[in-house]
Structures are given as structure tokens and as C-alpha cells.
């Protein structure tokens, strides 16, 4: 059992920036390896949170952390849906960069609300070819809530691709959001990219 001071939004924000490989996972991931990844994320994020910086000041550090530990390209692709397959590589790369900025701002903005929370990793289990790491988050004034980390083996290294808090999963939230934005722009990915980068 590892116990760390951490915030709820920190984890979500932990998805914000990554330039990790887009390679699909090849082999089954050991749950212990996935748990090791989550332990490393917490070990990096906890000192950052306790540094006393504002959320804005923490953005760059979070971007580095998430570039290392999250599969943001896979998250960006899932959020865009079927359209992603039709995009030329350069256009997808532009979208992915804009998505990363959007995520950093979206989840970083409310970050300070969750200072003072604690997280305890409680277990890890296989999830198809992937693995699920379970954790409990405790925040002052709230009942403890469960957070799940879904981790894949991406090109030989573990990266997390989804976070689920009390049943609400980030991939579904971002798919809903990005596809609503795309629909509001008449399906114009170029305008989506522009607006995401400025959101």
C-alpha cells in the first residue's frame, strides 16, 4: 500500500500532455508493471502539487509528466472518433497538439480545488491485454471515492489511456466534448484545431 498526497484533478491533468508513441500495444501487460507506472506518476506529481505553485505555473511540469506517463495520442484519437482515420498525418498531428493544449488548460484550471486530497493504490488486475490499477482518493469534506487507471503496453512501455472516477470515464467525456465541438463547426477539423488551441 502506498499513500500519497495528491489531488483529484492532478490525475486528470496527468493526461494533459504527451508526445508518446502512437504504436498500438503488442503484448499483454503485467498488472504489477501497470501498478509501477501509477506509483511513478504519483511519485512525480505529489512533490509538484506540494510545491505551492499556482495551477498555471504547474502546467509545463504537468505536460512533461504526462508526456512520459500517458498515451495522449491514443486519447486524442479516441476523442475525435472515426474522423481521425480519414485525416492526413500532418493534420492529425496538428489536432493532437491542439488537443494536448486543450487538455492541459481544461484540467489544470480547476486544479487547486483539490489540494489536500490523498490517494492510496489498492490493487491491480488484468484488463484484457491491458491492466487496471485501482486507487481510493480521500478529500476533506467528501466520502472517499474510487479512481481506476487503465494502462496499456505501448511499444514496450506502460502508459495510461483512461481514468475512471466513480464510473465516469475520461475517454467518454472527451469523445462527447470533441465531437460536440466538431459538430458545432460543421465537421471542419481545421476550425476545431484552431479553437482547441485557443480554448
Amino acid at each position: 500500500m502506498q499513500r500519497n498526497d495528491l489531488t483529484r484533478r492532478a490525475f486528470v491533468a496527468a493526461l494533459t500532455a504527451s508526445v508518446a508513441s502512437v504504436a498500438a500495444p503488442a503484448s499483454a501487460l503485467e498488472p504489477a508493471t501497470a501498478r509501477g507506472l501509477v506509483d511513478r506518476v504519483l511519485a512525480d506529481v505529489v512533490p509538484l502539487i506540494n510545491s505551492g505553485q499556482t495551477a498555471e505555473q504547474m502546467f509545463p511540469a504537468f505536460e512533461r509528466i504526462f508526456a512520459t506517463y500517458a498515451d495522449v495520442p491514443a486519447i486524442a484519437r479516441a476523442a475525435l472518433g472515426p474522423v481521425a482515420r480519414t485525416l492526413p498525418a500532418a493534420e492529425f498531428a496538428a489536432y493532437e497538439g491542439a488537443f494536448r493544449l486543450y487538455m492541459a488548460r481544461k484540467y489544470g484550471r480547476r486544479f487547486r480545488e483539490f489540494i489536500g486530497g490523498r490517494i492510496e493504490v489498492t490493487g491491480a488486475a488484468p484488463l484484457g491485454r491491458h491492466a487496471e490499477v485501482r486507487s481510493m482518493v480521500e478529500m476533506t469534506g467528501w466520502a472517499p471515492f474510487e479512481m481506476l487507471w487503465h494502462v496499456a503496453d505501448v511499444g514496450g512501455q506502460p502508459l495510461f489511456f483512461n481514468l475512471i472516477i466513480e464510473g465516469v470515464n475520461m475517454l467518454a467525456v472527451e469523445r462527447t466534448e470533441i465531437q460536440a465541438m466538431l459538430a458545432a463547426r460543421g465537421g471542419d477539423v481545421g476550425r476545431l484545431v484552431q479553437d482547441l488551441a485557443q480554448a
Binding site: 491514443a74 484519437r77 488484468p126 484484457g128
Partner: peptide
């Protein structure tokens, strides 16, 4: 999603979002 979680309808190992499957 949260209501289904409360009711214990989520969490089955085969029922998760897999961005690599598609």
C-alpha cells in the same frame, strides 16, 4: 455513467473503453 457505477453495473473486465481495439 455515475448512476450505473452506483448500481454496480460497471466494472466488468470485458466492458471497458479500449482505444486500441478500433
Amino acid at each position: 455513467q455515475n448512476r450505473r457505477f452506483q448500481l454496480g453495473q460497471t466494472g466488468a473486465a470485458e466492458d471497458f473503453e479500449d482505444p486500441y481495439a478500433a
